[in-house]
């Protein structure tokens, strides 16, 4: 079921081979291979505890795999901290951990990467202007860069987090359950943000429980189950019903 044939027009961005991850005695990732091309949109699905979060945390530098190799643009890399993955151009947008609710939009967008003058003092004006540009770039028109995140809707918050990734020239954006606990309208907004990323040639890994969300945007879908890769399949070769049965059954046979 794996799609080994590579398209000559696209370049491989990230490749992981033979990834193993243990938490004590729990073998959370078992010999997982994963790859994503430049500008590709991959949906990562699976039941709770399937290893989705662990896999992306290995990519984003939160966890270190005990075994396995990671290649970025064809070169082998070591990702041992979030800083490392960010330096490669990998930005991860976590569900509830992306933004500080009581801080302003601009302080959130530049969190940890503040533009500064001598002695580390903030370039407040640059922060504000670039924040508004970054939001407009995502098709998000908010009143001011100084309003706090807590006043935004769930969809707008995802938009701010994605705009931040885009602003820092991400090549790969990982979205961890971006549509969880959102209204139907907000889900549509978020999916539109993801399409924006695709139009700008940015690769996206989209994690979700909801196969319908992923089907509207993904090029390829990877199914994990109990730490193993169960399927790696192009969207055009499958459908929602087959996939959901696969996830529920948990085995290919």
């Amino acid at each position: 079921m794996s799609s080994n044939e590579s398209n000559p027009n696209t370049k491989e961005l990230l490749k992981m081979t033979g990834i193993h991850k243990y938490f004590g005695k729990v073998h959370s990732l078992i010999n997982v291979d994963f790859k994503i091309d430049e500008g590709e949109n991959v949906g990562l699905v699976g039941d709770n505890g399937a290893g989705k979060s662990t896999l992306i945390k290995v990519i984003s530098g939160y966890h270190r795999a005990e075994k396995g190799k990671i290649y970025f643009k064809g070169k082998e890399v070591k990702i041992s901290s979030p800083k490392d993955s960010r330096a490669l151009g990998i930005e991860t947008v976590y569900q509830d951990q992306a933004l500080a609710p009581d801080l302003s939009i601009s302080r959130n967008i530049f969190m940890g990467r503040e533009p500064v003058v001598a002695l580390g003092f903030l370039k407040k004006k640059v922060m504000d202007e670039e924040s508004m540009d970054a939001l407009k770039n995502m098709g998000l028109y908010l009143k001011s860069p100084n309003i706090t995140i807590s006043t935004l809707s769930g969809g707008e918050r995802q938009g701010v987090a994605i705009a931040r990734a885009l602003h820092f020239k991400a090549k790969l954006v990982i979205l961890d359950e971006p549509t969880a606990s959102l209204s139907v309208k907000e889900v549509r907004e978020v999916l539109e943000f993801v399409n924006q990323l695709k139009r700008k040639g940015i690769a996206v890994i989209f994690i979700t429980h909801n196969l319908h969300h992923i089907f509207s945007i993904a090029d390829r879908i990877v199914v994990l189950s109990h730490g193993e890769k169960l399927a790696d399949i192009k969207k055009k070769d499958t459908n929602v019903d087959d996939l959901s049965e696969l996830i529920i059954r948990g085995t290919i046979g």
Binding site: R86, Y94, L99, A100, P101, R107, G112, R113
Partner: peptide, 15 residues
């Protein structure tokens, strides 16, 4: 501010 408001967010932004 980021650390006090959402420590996990701050950490994921490499603070």
């Amino acid at each position: 501010f980021s650390t006090g408001d959402n420590e996990r967010a701050a950490r994921s932004m490499a603070i």
